[in-house]
Computed example of a mutant assay.
Amino acid sequence: MREFLTTSWSLVMDNRFNPLRHLDLASQHYFMQVLAWMWSMVFSLSFLSIFHFHLLWFGHLLLVAGVFITVAVFSKAEATAKTQESGSELSHGSVCVWQLDREA
């Protein structure tokens, strides 16, 4: 049963296995976003919570925005790390420089 659920999840949610894998990444994202909003509306209407749909919509919006902000920050950090020299274990902001002439 667990394997069935894992496989089913991958066939729908994993862009390496679902039918959208043949599209470019931006198109995959767009269609997955449209499907997510559609299913949000379907579940909202099926539970007769049309009067509370704005709360559900706002909650989904916050969740998706949080995920994208996190991905953007991680991507920026990864790109910054690649441009820095690979020999240093510390980031550029963590490097301590001792300047004797200023401290005297």
Rank of each mutant, 00 (worst) to 15 (best):
100 L>D: 09
56 L>D: 02
58 F>T: 05
83 T>K: 09
64 V>M: 03
21 R>E: 05
54 H>L: 12
39 W>D: 01
47 F>P: 00
74 F>G: 07
50 I>K: 02
5 L>K: 04
16 R>C: 08
2 R>A: 02
43 F>D: 02
37 W>F: 06
54 H>F: 10
94 S>T: 03
67 V>G: 00
19 P>Q: 01
17 F>I: 08
100 L>T: 14
101 D>W: 15
95 V>Q: 14
49 S>R: 14
82 K>G: 02
22 H>G: 07
66 G>V: 12
29 H>M: 03
21 R>N: 06
31 F>H: 10
86 S>T: 04
84 Q>M: 15
70 T>Y: 02
59 G>D: 01
76 K>S: 14
54 H>M: 09
57 W>V: 12
10 S>F: 04
75 S>G: 03
17 F>Q: 07
53 F>V: 13
16 R>P: 05
95 V>M: 13
7 T>W: 09
100 L>S: 14
65 A>K: 05
48 L>W: 04
66 G>A: 06
31 F>E: 11
5 L>I: 01
84 Q>K: 13
74 F>A: 14
74 F>I: 12
15 N>P: 04
78 E>H: 10
38 M>T: 09
77 A>E: 09
44 S>E: 10
45 L>A: 11
20 L>H: 02
36 A>F: 05
19 P>V: 06
46 S>N: 08
1 M>P: 02
52 H>Y: 12
88 S>M: 08
53 F>M: 09
23 L>T: 08
20 L>R: 01
102 R>T: 11
16 R>N: 10
64 V>I: 10
36 A>K: 13
52 H>K: 15
28 Q>T: 00
39 W>L: 09
83 T>M: 08
49 S>K: 11
81 A>P: 00
60 H>K: 03
17 F>N: 05
25 L>E: 10
100 L>I: 14
83 T>E: 06
18 N>T: 00
61 L>H: 03
24 D>H: 03
17 F>T: 05
53 F>C: 06
2 R>K: 03
100 L>G: 12
102 R>I: 13
31 F>M: 12
103 E>H: 04
28 Q>H: 06
101 D>K: 15
2 R>L: 01
59 G>R: 06
59 G>Y: 06
49 S>Y: 10
71 V>S: 02
